[in-house]
Amino acid sequence: MPTATMTSKGQITVPQSVRAALGLHAGTKVDFVQVADGYKVVALQAGTTSLKGRFAGRASKPVSIEQMDEAIAAETAARHGRVKRKS
């Protein structure tokens, strides 16, 4: 199993076999997705098809459009110091 050692600055060199398996190259961005027993490293690719499954397991149940709108409004109000008034 490939291993890597972290430097004092928090950097690691990803072993060549792992880079090849994940399709990583200079400039590739990666995401660290928390899973039950640790983290999964996911290479980020351009395009929407690369997002499939990226957020799997992060939400316990589906969220409605109305709930999304409410959350966006609440966060916007919080960032701008405004209080949301109910109609």
Rank of each mutant, 00 (worst) to 15 (best):
A78E: 09
K61C: 09
D69Q: 14
R54Q: 11
K86G: 11
S50L: 02
H25F: 05
A73R: 15
A26C: 03
R79H: 10
M6A: 15
A43G: 02
K29M: 06
S8E: 15
L22W: 03
R58L: 14
A77Y: 01
V41K: 03
K84W: 08
E66M: 12
A78Y: 06
G23E: 01
P62S: 13
S87C: 05
A77C: 01
D37N: 12
V63C: 06
V33P: 02
K9L: 06
Q45G: 11
K61Y: 12
K9E: 12
A26V: 13
V63I: 15
P15Y: 00
Q34V: 14
S17D: 08
K52V: 11
H25G: 08
A74H: 08
V42N: 07
K61M: 11
I72C: 08
K61E: 14
A78Q: 09
M1R: 05
T76V: 12
K40D: 13
A46C: 04
R54I: 07
L24G: 04
Q16I: 07
G38S: 03
V30I: 15
K40R: 14
R58T: 08
I65M: 07
Q45D: 09
S60M: 10
A56D: 14
R85A: 14
G10R: 05
Y39H: 15
A21M: 03
A77L: 01
A36S: 12
Y39A: 12
F32L: 15
G53P: 06
L44N: 04
K29N: 05
V30S: 09
A73T: 11
T48I: 10
K84G: 05
L51V: 00
S50N: 10
G10M: 05
V14N: 04
T7F: 03
P62L: 10
Y39T: 11
S50E: 04
G81F: 03
V42A: 05
R58D: 05
L51R: 01
Q16P: 13
T48D: 10
H25M: 04
Q16F: 07
A20Q: 11
V83R: 15
G38N: 03
K9G: 05
R85H: 08
T3P: 00
G53N: 04
D69P: 00
D31V: 09
V41W: 03
Y39D: 06
T49I: 00
V14G: 04
L51F: 02
A74W: 10
S64E: 08
G47S: 01
K29S: 07
A74K: 14
T13G: 03
G53C: 03
Y39F: 15
Q16M: 08
K29R: 13
L24Q: 03
G23Y: 01
K52C: 04
P2S: 08
K52D: 07
V33D: 07
I72R: 10
V63E: 06
P62W: 06
Q11G: 00
K52H: 11
V35K: 09
H80E: 14
S17A: 10
S8T: 15
S64L: 09
H80V: 11
I72W: 06
V33M: 09
A20W: 01
V14T: 06
A78V: 01
G27W: 00
G23P: 00
H80K: 13
Q45L: 12
H80Y: 13
P62N: 08
M6L: 13
R54Y: 03
A4H: 02
S17E: 11
